[in-house]
């Protein structure tokens, strides 16, 4: 005896009817249109990373890692990237990198303003929070089904799935960062006649920057994992290598793809963490001064670029 003996809900049919009968015929053009900007940006990055020589990319990342994290990380970057190149996965890695950068870019563009918005209105935050909770609870695989239904298969749908999957942390952390700005600082800004926009750009965003950066790091990591899964619906890059390896039971190929992903993940994670960690890269001691003297103005520590960004 179980409830199903009494009543069977045709849940599957309902969803099918809703998606196939309503969403797809009525909103297909809209979903197609949504892909356009994603596709444009993705192809731009993809073409760029395909064009830049491997050594230049490695040098740029090594320099960034050196300035933001330290010498050790720079060496890891160089060794890791050379390894990827030597196992002949460089083009795939660059595709994955382009996909990740595209997703993170869209996540930032969408997530930071939403985060700011919900930080300023308790009501908006109450509405947004359960949505974010759901987004973070739904397993990444489950996203893929409606995405395929609505957007089709290919690179752009893969990126869109990634964007949706990786969006919550940056919204949460932006919200948190803005809300945690000391009340008397906001009061001070207001007392000197700052408009709400001036208060936001001059005080709140710069002070929330580290927390936002931590959110960006989380988003990046989620994007990283999703980009691989997105290969299931036709996105390329290292994910495809792993998938193909799995399909053919080619352990070597799958492992090679996996190692490439791990190396890329480590490098990106450490660099973005470096931006988010307090105290890193903002010391004005002798060594830091010498470093900036040697390397010129390549990379400014995060804390000092606040005013420039908001100016």
């Amino acid at each position: 005896m179980s409830p199903s003996d009494l009543l069977i809900l045709p849940f599957e049919d309902w969803i099918n009817a809703f998606v196939r009968g309503f969403l797809v015929p009525n909103f297909r053009p809209l979903f197609r249109a949504l892909q356009v900007p994603v596709n444009e940006v993705l192809q731009g990055f993809d073409a760029f990373f395909a064009w830049v020589p491997m050594l230049a990319v490695t040098a740029a990342f090594a320099l960034l890692a050196w300035r933001v994290v330290g010498r050790g990380m720079a060496i890891v970057t160089i060794v890791g990237f050379c390894f990827i190149d030597m196992i002949e996965l460089w083009p795939e890695t660059m595709t994955t990198l382009a996909m990740i950068i595209t997703s993170v870019l869209f996540c930032t563009v969408i997530g930071v303003p939403i985060g700011i918005l919900v930080a300023r209105s308790d009501r908006a935050w109450k509405l947004t929070r359960p949505i974010l909770d759901i987004m973070q609870t739904v397993p990444s695989f489950v996203y893929l089904v409606p995405i395929v239904m609505l957007f089709g298969v290919g690179m752009a749908p893969g990126i869109i799935a990634t964007i949706i999957f990786a969006l919550p942390p940056i919204i949460r952390m932006t919200n948190l960062g803005i809300r945690n700005v000391r009340g008397d600082l906001i009061e001070a800004a207001e007392a000197f006649g700052a408009t709400p926009t001036q208060t936001l750009l001059e005080v709140q965003v710069p002070l929330a920057m580290r927390t936002i950066m931590a959110g960006l790091n989380q988003t990046l990591m989620l994007a990283m994992s999703m980009v691989v899964i997105a290969a299931l619906i036709g996105a390329g890059g290292l994910g495809l290598v792993v998938n193909t390896g799995l399909g053919r039971l080619n352990v070597g190929q799958a492992t090679a793809g996996g190692v490439g992903i791990v190396i890329l993940a480590i490098v990106l994670d450490r660099i973005t963490q470096g931006f988010a960690e307090p105290g890193k890269g903002q010391k004005t001691g002798l060594i830091a001064a010498l470093k900036s003297f040697v390397s010129g103005q390549t990379v400014e520590p995060a804390s000092q670029t606040y005013s420039d960004k908001t100016a």
């Binding site: 008397d184 001070a188 800004a189 000197f192 006649g193 002070l207 005013s307």
Partner: peptide
């Protein structure tokens, strides 16, 4: 203008930028 109990200086701005805040806005 106002002077605050816990100073309420903007930690990400230099002293001069803090002082000039009212003029900046």
């Amino acid at each position: 203008t106002m002077v605050f109990q816990h100073f309420a200086l903007f930690p990400h701005k230099t002293v001069a930028e803090n002082v000039a805040f009212g003029l900046r806005v």
